Simulated scan of single mutants.
Amino acid sequence: MSFRQAVGAATGAALLLLTAPAAAHALDEALVPAAAAIPAAPVAAAESVTVDTAGKLSVDGTITLSGTYRCSGATGPVFVSSSLVQGGGNVRHGIGGTRAVCDGAEHRWANTARLDTTAFAAGEAQVEATLMELRPGFLGLPLPHFHATSQRQVMLAQA
């Protein structure tokens, strides 16, 4: 096969791939002409995760962060994770994980972790909370699906 033939074959294949979705859509519309009459699914309740303005730091290095979350329509397990950084550092420390219930209602979460007592001190810190679902994916392997994330400056107080 010459170079010109190879380029022509590749171009033809690319055009076929580019036009296939439009052709499939047109076929769907021809087969289901009343599709426009089907009402849209109701919009899911807003999904969110918040972080409280204060965190607790005990003398043994145990840190507790908390907040609220809301989610719905989960097909796999959902968790609220949180992380903490202080003093302009580059290293985020994971602070626990809580199993979430995605029923559309607002719930409280609280995560706790015991870190080196010298890692953090009372004062300002940056917290990030994430509401993440593990959905079944290719060959049943769980894949992450992020429902919501939030960052907030908090005050770590000695507990």
Rank of each mutant, 00 (worst) to 15 (best):
P39E: 14
P39D: 13
A40Y: 02
A40R: 11
P42S: 15
A44Y: 10
A44P: 14
A45I: 08
A45R: 14
A46K: 09
A46D: 15
E47H: 15
E47D: 12
E47Q: 15
V51M: 09
D52C: 02
D52K: 00
D52G: 10
T53F: 03
A54Q: 15
A54F: 09
A54S: 11
G55V: 02
K56D: 10
L57C: 04
S58F: 07
S58Y: 10
D60W: 00
G61R: 02
T62H: 05
T62P: 01
I63S: 08
T64G: 00
T68V: 00
Y69M: 06
R70D: 02
C71I: 12
C71N: 08
G73T: 03
G73H: 09
A74D: 06
T75N: 11
G76E: 03
P77W: 06
P77C: 04
F79D: 04
V80Y: 05
V80M: 08
S83G: 14
L84Q: 05
V85F: 03
G88Q: 11
G88E: 14
G89A: 15
R92K: 14
R92D: 08
R92P: 00
H93D: 02
H93S: 11
I95L: 13
G96W: 07
T98N: 14
T98Y: 11
R99V: 15
A100I: 08
A100H: 04
A100S: 12
C102N: 08
G104N: 13
A105Y: 00
H107Y: 02
R108T: 14
W109S: 05
W109P: 03
A110S: 15
A110Y: 05
N111V: 05
T112S: 13
T112D: 09
A113T: 12
A113D: 10
A113C: 03
A113I: 03
R114H: 08
R114K: 15
